[in-house]
Write a protein that binds this DNA or RNA. Structure first.
Length: 834
RNA sequence: GGGCGAGUGGCGGAACGGCAGACGCGCCGGCCUUAGGAGCCGGUGUCGCAAGACGUGCGAGUUCGAAUCUCGCCUCGCCCACCA
């Protein structure tokens, strides 16, 4: 063995470790060599790896690094494994912040946005991420949004884009209509600024995503995180039940149609409730009730969603004077209007079954309406407290005519059938999901390519007139109307039917329309003749692996799926889903555990860190702090550890070789052990990169580097095993720390580039140890360890275990009750007990 | 209110039902140094001089064996929220 001083004498000095000496140089070289350019004609198997593009807010922060480094590591490994990887990047550059900057500071949104893009593009390069910048997509570029508009026209022609008057969520601060998905929380606030929204009636453009509700529920063959699939499923909110028509006591008035998931409780329907917005409300209101009903409806309309939902769930409503007939009991039941019934769900009207629905029950008790029990638990009587809410299985009908005694699960079908036979009902499905509202009364978005002719109404802009360009000379006063509405030049259009003067649509599209297809544009980003080249899309799509934040679970990720399905049905695409596999990264929070934002002042700027430690250290540190899908509050303590690790790698990869101090046999055993460490590390790291477990992968690289350092100290630094270990370490490290890996690879005289080398091969034969250390338990508690050769027979292991004095102490000379062996794992001796 | 997820050292976190705390930070001791805020070596769950005992939010259960599985509770986070 060498002495410590020997080791130190050799390990001291050597080339200085300073990432500033080489990081930028390599990035320039990679860029110049087009190392990450994906070629459509490359015969190797394609692999489309995509990470969500950012909004160009101004500067790259540590969260961008975190989000990008994970997939970059996978992309780099896949390239080395021989795949033809496409890993593009772009900018989601339409949207509100640019316009707000224009209002606040008088900078034109395009100038502000483009300056940000330029800055962020440069900052992205310092991350060392291997993006193919030749495929960059910028959605606010007319060369892109021209095709966003073209897609709108395709949807319009297919009947999937339509215009409708709608009460919409309106953010009074941002002065903009919001999609339902963009209104959050119990107080119904704007997802961007947090201001509570109000309702406004406006003529709006919608995409018919509801046509695809059922198909969007199908995740067959998709490798997506369970929580995301669940959120989309809940958002779509499919319910099966029945629709039932209740005749009303009024001449020539259509019946009230209701949707219910529990048609088996129809015998218990003792009143009906219409939403205030329901069209039959004015029809069925009697004259003596009219004043009160109109006041109630007007109040409900005036109230914001917040007030309507909060108010401590106090249920309010008004009797409208008319009655309906329960089709089963033939009883007259009163019709009420109440705002707890929502206009947008089901039919906007319900049959109220107060005995078995909590909300109806509350309402009935408030207004002293009759409560009739028609279901009881299969075992036992109704509970005394009269609060039995029917739920699912294991219930039996009571007081329900011919259906009495029938299990509820059976009665659902039987009663639905009878209603169908009577011609007043039948099975029905209802969804929570609504059509996607895409109109925005803002400037900085893709103009909707529609015009309005006084003669011929809404007309699509002819495709050869695209793009409808955003005018540059606009006034950005913060008003409720889009600045486009006051731009005379923009408004002027010519009707394609009659050639007369038409008025251009001034709404722009939701930015989620831009991002619903950007992954297609990456396949042929510079094709100015069409949205995408069908061959290129056929080659690259679908995306093999998509990464991004879980916050897009029901927004972007559902819209993109909808787009692909709709375009498939129009004949433009020939696959069903855009993203085969999905992984979500966690969020890096500020040190105060809050979401990073400029206003909170908790944004971590990576520049200070990179100038001090270099990009590799920052990348590796971010990937090391915990599971990638978990994120967490920013805490830079510990970055020194990563830097020290890279310093050690620097050193062991190029320090003077050390050989000869060990005895021959000892040296051979040391080499075997080092090769074992090398090959177990190759296997483990390969597996863990693929599973996005970067933190444990890096810990294993640290272990290997420690093993290499010890091997050097032990005097085998000039052996082939040592060289193999260092080469493997650099190759395995290359995805996470591309610069230092390249630099050391070059310094070791290897061929440029390390990033084009084959991924190290794992030899299982070298990874197995010939001796094992078996834990010996007594009654499940660790008491001793056995060191045995791998081929020791079980009987021998048992004999050795029982012979152990630590085991004997617990056996007290008695024979064991059992001895359990998990081959290669452990021995457990079970004592006879008392 | 409903759904989903998570609770492990001083800290970030490891651990196919099988050695709890890998790896790293921090801390303690040492070496080397004119010096060390560099580097290297060793130690570090708690209690205990030790042998050992106890330890994964709390309480039960299944099992030869539970951080891991089951049930109940507590706390935190995220999503949804009058959806008939």
């Amino acid at each position: 063995m060498t002495t410590r001083t020997d080791t130190q004498a050799r390990s001291a000095r050597g080339p200085r470790f300073d990432p500033a000496d080489y990081e930028q140089r390599w990035r320039d070289r990679w860029e110049a060599d087009g190392l990450y350019r994906a070629d459509d004609a490359d015969p190797r198997q394609k692999h489309y790896l995509l990470t969500m593009y950012p909004y160009p807010s101004g500067d790259l922060h540590i969260g961008h690094w975190y989000a990008a480094t994970g997939p970059d590591m996978v992309a780099r490994m896949r390239r080395m494994q021989g795949l033809n990887v496409m890993f593009p990047m772009g900018f989601d550059s339409f949207g509100l912040p640019a316009e707000n900057a224009a209002i606040d500071r008088g900078i034109h949104p395009a100038i502000w946005t483009n300056a940000n893009i330029e800055r962020m593009r440069a900052q992205f390069r310092t991350t060392g991420c291997g993006f193919d910048w030749s495929r960059e997509v910028v959605v606010s570029d007319p060369r892109y949004y021209r095709w966003t508009q073209w897609l709108f026209l395709q949807f319009y022609r297919a009947g999937l884009a339509y215009r409708s008057m709608a009460a919409v969520d309106w953010c009074p601060k941002d002065q903009v209509v919001l999609a339902r998905e963009q209104v959050e929380g119990a107080d119904r606030h704007c997802w961007r600024c947090g201001t509570p929204v109000i309702k406004r009636d406006l003529e709006q453009w919608f995409f018919r995503i509801t046509n695809y509700a059922d198909e969007l529920l199908d995740f067959t063959g998709m490798d997506w995180p369970e929580p995301i699939r669940l959120m989309q499923t809940n958002w779509i909110g499919r319910s099966e039940g029945a629709e039932i028509a209740f005749a009303v006591e009024a001449d020539e008035v259509e019946p009230i149609r209701v949707f219910t998931t529990r048609p088996d409780t129809v015998f218990g329907a003792t009143f009906m409730v219409l939403a205030p917005e329901h069209p039959l409300v004015p029809v069925l209101t009697t004259d003596e009730r009219r004043a009160e009903v109109e006041a109630y409806v007007a109040a409900a309309r005036r109230e914001t969603e917040i007030e309507r939902l909060s108010a401590d769930r106090q249920k309010t409503g008004v009797f409208i004077g008319s009655h309906a007939i329960n089709p089963m009991t033939q009883e007259r039941i009163p019709i009420w209007v109440a705002d707890y019934v929502l206009p947008g769900y089901g039919t906007g009207a319900i049959m109220a079954v107060p005995a078995h629905d909590e909300r109806d029950g509350t309402f009935a008790r408030t207004y002293e309406l009759p409560i009739r029990y028609v279901v009881r638990p299969a075992s036992g009587e109704l509970p005394d407290d009269q609060a039995f809410v029917a739920h699912t299985a294991d219930e039996v009908l009571v007081d329900s005519g011919e259906f009495t005694g029938m299990p509820a699960s059976e009665a659902i079908g039987a009663i639905t059938q009878q209603l169908a036979d009577l011609g007043i009902g039948g099975p029905a499905v209802s969804y929570k999901i609504r059509d996607w509202l895409v109109s925005r009364q803002r400037y900085w978005g893709a103009p909707i390519p529609i015009m309005y002719c006084p003669e011929h109404g809404a007309q699509p802009v002819p495709e050869d007139q695209l793009p409808v360009l955003l005018p540059e000379d606009v006034d950005f006063a913060p008003t409720a109307v889009s600045p486009l509405q006051s731009h005379a030049e923009f408004l002027k259009a010519t009707c394609p039917v009659c050639g007369g003067e038409a008025r251009r649509e001034t709404d722009t599209m939701d930015t989620f329309v831009d991002s619903a297809w950007y992954f297609l544009r990456y396949c042929s980003p510079n094709d100015d003749a069409r949205a995408w080249n069908p061959q290129a899309v056929a080659h690259w799509m679908p995306v093999d692996l998509y990464t991004g934040g879980a916050e897009h679970a029901v927004l972007h990720l559902m819209y993109a799926r909808f787009f692909v399905k709709a375009l498939r049905d129009m004949g433009h695409l020939s696959f069903d889903e855009p993203f085969v596999a999905l992984r979500n990264q966690g969020q890096i929070l500020g040190a105060d555990h809050q979401r990073m934002s400029k206003s909170r002042g908790n944004v971590v700027n990576p520049d200070d860190l990179t100038s001090r430690y270099g990009s590799d250290t920052v990348r590796l540190f971010l990937m090391f702090i915990g599971p990638w899908d978990q994120g967490g509050p920013w805490n830079p303590t510990g970055i020194e550890g990563i830097h020290r690790f890279l310093g050690r790698v620097w050193h062991i990869a190029q320090a003077e070789p050390t050989n000869g101090e060990s005895l021959l046999g000892e040296a051979q055993e040391l080499q075997r052990a080092l090769r074992r460490a090398t090959h177990t590390t190759i296997a483990a790291v390969t597996e863990e990169y693929g599973a996005f477990r970067f933190n444990t992968a890096i810990s294993k690289l640290m272990e290997l580097s420690n093993a290499i350092a010890h091997a050097r100290g032990a005097g085998i630094g000039a052996t082939a095993a040592y060289g193999e270990a260092v080469d493997a370490l650099l190759l395995l490290l290359a995805p996470g720390a591309p610069h230092i890996a390249e630099e050391l690879w070059a310094r070791r005289g290897r061929d440029y580039s390390i990033h084009q080398q084959p991924w190290p091969a794992y030899d299982p034969a070298l990874a197995v140890a010939d001796t094992l250390e078996l834990p010996v338990q007594v009654d499940g508690k660790l008491r001793d360890r056995l060191v045995v050769t791998r081929d020791t027979p079980a009987e021998e292991i048992e004999r050795l275990a029982l012979a152990s004095e630590h085991v004997q102490r617990y056996l007290d000379g008695r024979p064991p009750r059992r001895v359990i062996q998990v081959p290669g794992k452990l021995v457990n001796v079970v004592t006879p007990g008392d």
